[in-house]
C-alpha cells in the first residue's frame, strides 16, 4: 500500500494534472516541428548530394557526421549558455528545436542517401533512356524508392529524437519532465514522475508499435 501511495497518489495526481496536460501539449508541438523540419532538411540535403558537387557534398557530409557524433545535450548547453555571450539569446524551446531538428536532419540525410545509393543504376538508366531529365528521374523514380526503403529506420530515428525533448528539462522548457520533476520536489511524492512516465508511454508506445508494423510490412515487400 505504501508503494501505491508513493507512486500513484490520487490527490497529487489530480492536483498536477492540468499543469501536466499543458506540458504534454508543449512536448507535442516541439516534437512535431522537430520531425517535420528535420525530415525536410535531411531530404533536401540528400537530394543536393546527388548532384555530386564537392562544394555541396563536403559541408553536407560534415554536418551529417557531426550531427550524428555529438551528444545533443552538449550542443544544447553550448547554444543555451554559450550563444548569449555573443548577444544571441535563444529561448529554451528554440534551442531545443534547432538542436534536435538539426540532429534528426543529420540522421535523415544519411538514411535518404543510403536509400538513394541503393536504387540500382538500371533504374536511373531506364528513366534517362525514356527521356526523363535528371531531376525527373530523381523525383519520380529514385526518391520514392529511397523513401520507401528509409521508412523503418526513419520512424525509429524520429522516435528516438522526439524522446529527447525531455532534454528540455535541463534548459527550463516547460515540457513533461520539467513540470513533473518540479511537481515531485514540491509535493514530496514520486507520483508526478509516474504521471510523466505514463504520459510519455501514451505518446510514444503507439509509435513503437507502429514501427513494428511498418518494419514487418516493408521487410517482406522488397
Amino acid at each position: 500500500m505504501r508503494f501505491l501511495d508513493t507512486f500513484f497518489d490520487g490527490a497529487v495526481m489530480a492536483k498536477y494534472l492540468p499543469e501536466l496536460l499543458s506540458a504534454i501539449v508543449t512536448t507535442l508541438w516541439i516534437s512535431l516541428i522537430v520531425v517535420v523540419a528535420g525530415l525536410a532538411l535531411g531530404l533536401v540535403m540528400a537530394c543536393l548530394r546527388t548532384l555530386g558537387r564537392w562544394y555541396l557534398t563536403l559541408p553536407i557530409v560534415a554536418f551529417a557526421d557531426i550531427g550524428r557524433a555529438l551528444p545533443p545535450l552538449v550542443v544544447i548547453l553550448i547554444f543555451y549558455f554559450g550563444l548569449p555571450g555573443l548577444g544571441i539569446n535563444l529561448s529554451g524551446p528554440m534551442v531545443l528545436i534547432l538542436v534536435l531538428g538539426g540532429v534528426l536532419a543529420a540522421f535523415a540525410e544519411e538514411i535518404f542517401w543510403a536509400g538513394l545509393t541503393s536504387v540500382s543504376r538500371g533504374q536511373w538508366e531506364a528513366g534517362r533512356a525514356t527521356g526523363l531529365g535528371f531531376g525527373q528521374t530523381l523525383f519520380e523514380i529514385a526518391l520514392p524508392q529511397a523513401v520507401r526503403m528509409g521508412i523503418p529506420p526513419l520512424v525509429n530515428r524520429a522516435l528516438a529524437i522526439t524522446k529527447m525533448t525531455a532534454l528540455g528539462s535541463v534548459i527550463g522548457v516547460k515540457e513533461i519532465l520539467t513540470v513533473s520533476s518540479s511537481a515531485q520536489s514540491f509535493s514530496g511524492s514520486a507520483t508526478p514522475l509516474t504521471m510523466a512516465a505514463l504520459a510519455y508511454l501514451a505518446i510514444f508506445l503507439p509509435v513503437v508499435i507502429l514501427s513494428r508494423v511498418l518494419e514487418q510490412r516493408y521487410a517482406w515487400a522488397v
Binding site: 525531455a166 528539462s169 519532465l177 520533476s181 514520486a190 514522475l193 510519455y200 510514444f204 508506445l205
Partner: peptide, 22 residues
C-alpha cells in the same frame, strides 16, 4: 517496447529521484 517508448532521461530521473521514495 516499454523501454523503447520511455525517454532515457525520464527513466534516469525516475530511477534516481523516484526509487528513493520506495
Amino acid at each position: 517496447d516499454l523501454f523503447r517508448a520511455l525517454p532515457p532521461l525520464v527513466l534516469l530521473v525516475f530511477v534516481f529521484s523516484g526509487l528513493p521514495f520506495a
